[in-house]
Design a protein around this nucleic acid. Sequence first.
DNA 1: AATGAATGAGCCTTCATTCAT
DNA 2: CATGAATGAAGGCTCATTCAT
Lengths: 208, 208, 208, 208
Amino acid sequence: MSGTTQDATGATNAAPKRQRRGDTRQRIQDVALELFAEQGYEKTSLREIAERLDVTKAALYYHFKTKEDILIGLFQDLQRPIDELIEWAGTQPRTLDTKREILRRYSVALADVAPLFRFMQENQAAVRELSVGETFKDRMIRLIDTIKEPDAALTDQVRCTSALFTMHAGMFVLRDVEGDPEEKRKAVLEVAIDLVTQAHAGTQSSGS
Amino acid sequence: MSGTTQDATGATNAAPKRQRRGDTRQRIQDVALELFAEQGYEKTSLREIAERLDVTKAALYYHFKTKEDILIGLFQDLQRPIDELIEWAGTQPRTLDTKREILRRYSVALADVAPLFRFMQENQAAVRELSVGETFKDRMIRLIDTIKEPDAALTDQVRCTSALFTMHAGMFVLRDVEGDPEEKRKAVLEVAIDLVTQAHAGTQSSGS
Amino acid sequence: MSGTTQDATGATNAAPKRQRRGDTRQRIQDVALELFAEQGYEKTSLREIAERLDVTKAALYYHFKTKEDILIGLFQDLQRPIDELIEWAGTQPRTLDTKREILRRYSVALADVAPLFRFMQENQAAVRELSVGETFKDRMIRLIDTIKEPDAALTDQVRCTSALFTMHAGMFVLRDVEGDPEEKRKAVLEVAIDLVTQAHAGTQSSGS
Amino acid sequence: MSGTTQDATGATNAAPKRQRRGDTRQRIQDVALELFAEQGYEKTSLREIAERLDVTKAALYYHFKTKEDILIGLFQDLQRPIDELIEWAGTQPRTLDTKREILRRYSVALADVAPLFRFMQENQAAVRELSVGETFKDRMIRLIDTIKEPDAALTDQVRCTSALFTMHAGMFVLRDVEGDPEEKRKAVLEVAIDLVTQAHAGTQSSGS
DNA sequence: AATGAATGAGCCTTCATTCAT
DNA sequence: CATGAATGAAGGCTCATTCAT
């Protein structure tokens, strides 16, 4: 009824949610990821998250409708780079060079979202039934599809899959191997590229 | 809760209700694995396990001191074949042929304990802090050590690690790829052997 | 179990169900004391307390972090008068008159917190390991110290201890003796004062 | 305290139970007392008792029909000395000397059954409702009756009660006071005798 | 934008007890 | 004399969620 002044949010926002003083949502996600990654999704309670943020549990419910929603929010934020990569890959010619570039970009992207990725890896069971679970697997499959030829030999398909998983595994398993992280990343990337290169070669010769 | 399955004892049940006494412990583990794998460790309650076995929760506690203990029991079953493999590897000369045989055996062992393995893979977060968690990673490392040369190039070390993870990943990811399981297993094994072969070759030439 | 008392809100209940909000914590303590005293700490379940208050168990946990915490809260209420007495005693000269006054005040204080005291007396075993157990004994010792001379003869020390315990015991044992409570309290007090007086006299003469 | 009764089974006992290999019942009681005293009746589980005896819980049920029964057994064994004292008191003239002797004997008896006594004192709440609870309080009252004159002044009645409680309290509270136990026992006894003597004197003069 | 209070469901665990063997 | 296996009941506690304020 008094109308207009209520929505001070109004005027300028061409892009929504421009507010400086509304970082709570973000802080919730940050803390949540931290705890989810550390203890697992199921084992992390909203109480813990709230406590670490020094707000009440009820406050969380102002920003997220459910616990799962926090996870979904998290998920979407950090899934974007992968989506962009897949999209980009779609615009490129299906050459070996492109595939190599996909792996390179993926390697970088992976390093950026490492904590979330680790979390996803370690909580597959908990996340599977979540409305978001399918999406994750789908994304993986689509990504694999960008580097593997559908009519390739089974072994070459395995190679492409393996290339991706090598990169995933690399992050966790190599953690307690000697050496500088960047160097390790490169080594992992090299092996992955190798695998894809072999797969590609196989496809070419069998194809021609 | 109490009387639910009483009537199921009736006509159609192909599996007998009153199996030979003394197998309860085993049956608990079987059902537990089934449910843990399906829903995750945290999300599976003892009530569910008990109900499916048509015993009371308290009965579970006669056989296992805690929920975690059920998991540990499961875990040890999984560990045995791997331990045996590691032990066997220790007795063999460190040749390429040996390494290939290790992978072959591992592939078979893995197929045997697949559900358990899948569970472990998907519940790392839940299993990590389990008094037994360390052991699992340790075992992996020791297994990798049987196929990788300590002074090899970083990429070759990655290859060996990748060989193992390829086999792990193969079981889950390739599940929704066309083709007969045994054929897929062989393809995966082939790629793994390839990786180790390359790693071995690299080591040889750099060593000489 | 859930909705049982919903309808009890109805006509006949003389005590109002919806007391002024905010007193819940106090009400929990009141009911808890009542039940603890009646049945013992261990034998009283949170369910009982909750049921009698017509709230859920979980509500108790909003106000107290644990069952033991309810006891501790209770305890602190009991402690306050005694602490104040000890503190006051510290400010007074160590004369016989002071000691007599301590007993007088203690007698009154005791009558005020009688139920709680009775509970403590009767649940020593249950309370002993509880963080609150030590504190209780300490308090007794410090109180005794205010009336007994450290260098007194052993018998006189016993007399002082006995004076205090006479007052404790008096409350419970004399309950089924004939006579008006106030009169009994006075008789008990008189004996206690007598004991301390004797102890004091002994100390004086032996000291001079 | 542990093995005390082992040898007492020996020669002199006219009562049956002649078997050497049937001390299990006794051992159960010993261990039970030990644990009850240490942790309280409620907090001690049959599992603990069984474990410490290295038998199964079910074995306990061969010897005692219920957990409470163990307590009752314990109770009866150790209540005997008090009953005997009361009985003996009944045969004596009601003189001051007799009263003093009662106290002396009680003091000794108390020292013998100290652990049980302590347990009873500290577990009144748990023991109260036990079919045997009344008996304990009754016994106390009857014992007090042997040293107090029914028509005495209230203060003198308190003195007699106090005399008994002094002895009870003495055992527990004086435990962390300096000095040899036997000396302390005597000091406590002396004060108790003093109290009864005063009470007796009061009665005499008011009576004449 | 957030809190205080409470709920309902469920969880893991423990206990005293029973009974066929 | 004692065990192995199991039960029914209950216990303390935690969790995601709600809602009036």
